[in-house]
Design a protein around this nucleic acid. Sequence first.
DNA 1: GTCAATTCACATGAAAGAGACCACGGTCTAGTG
DNA 2: CTAGACCGTGGTCTCTTTCATGTGAATTGACGA
Length: 400
Amino acid sequence: MVELTKFFHGYLEREPLFKSKKVLQSNYTPENIAHRDDQIKTIAGILAPALRMEKPSNLFLYGKTGTGKTVVSKYVTSQILSVANEKKLPIQIIYLNCKLKRVADTEYRIIVQLAKEFGLDIPATGLPTDEVYKIFLKHIDSENKLIILVLDEIDQLVKKAGDEILYNLTRINFELKNVELSIIGISNDLLFMDGVDPRVKSSLSEEELVFSPYNALQIQDILRERAKEAFGEGIVREGVIEKCAAYAAREHGDARRALELLRVSAEIAERKNKSFICVENIDEAEEKIERDRVLDVVNTQPKQFQLTLLAIFDVCNLAESPVFTGDIYEIYKSFCGKVGLKPLTQRRVSDIIAELDMLGIINARVISKGRYGRTREIKLGIPSSTIPNIRTTLKESLNL
DNA sequence: GTCAATTCACATGAAAGAGACCACGGTCTAGTG
DNA sequence: CTAGACCGTGGTCTCTTTCATGTGAATTGACGA
């Protein structure tokens, strides 16, 4: 008891490492965005007609994760909005992240979310989709307005729900008299548009913009700028920024990852009562981020998912040689027996393995072994140091 | 030695079902005046 | 008479199963040199 109060007092007396933590959080939109001037100008140019109440062209942004697509579009739209507010223009910006599960990942839910933005409360389920459309359209069309709809991670949406939604959304303009709707689509997948209905394609990507990855130096700039706001003087030791940037650039110039790395490093240092962040903290941070990410996925997925993952861990642990779907399925089945769960079909497990691959927890590559068939070659996609930890968590949650 | 056919072990697709969740409208019930 | 409880119907959504079709190269076997 006494110990704890002492601890809390100590905690409060200690000089905090962070001056402002939110600067490093992923949803923070900084005042000025480094190395993205061109894109900002281009987007601003494309969206500017909105301020004359003319419908801007639909816009499509491509680029890998952490290249600033979201930040840039949020920045530009918020600027437009503030000008619009100043001039009392009826412009509305709606930002939807289509990747958010159970929020905006189906046609129905997109409409519900949109409706919510207009103060309309529609139940999350239970109504026919076209009914919801009608309610929404009627409500929206009652006043003059210009709407800019930002659909982030739009590729996820289309992959799950098909491109019909996009078609419907682009058609809204024809059905509404008083409202103009422009769409900004944001996609991580550069090839995404190839598989989309040509009609949608032509109307949606009237303008296109590619965000190229940052290089290590640019990431350093970004980190330095944010670190200046986030920490006090002298807290970030020599080489920390450089190393964070190098780690992130190793992937494909993912600035978000670099920022997260820096933030978690700082958190670790803080927890250790250090008054500075040093290079060693970064390695720990990297491992922690990875572990948390996997654990997060694992905990939110159904049991069968967890069992499959556990089977993969076990098989990969035992065998040095490459591991295939069939092996996993056998082990998985035996686990099911132990836990008393009805095993899924191989078809389903195959899909689950594919999903795990998508999540980056494993690396699965389809290979052909010639006469000996075609299968997935499975390797672990996470550092082996994190695995024992995850494995025990898994086993606990499964009572194995 | 060359070349096409074969063959394996799954991958990949499509469709459809089970079960959870929910809204809506109608009917029933009990309480009220 | 009316508010609330309780159905049945019809809708979405996720996770699965079932059935069907696809696939890439090692292997096989026929063929000719």
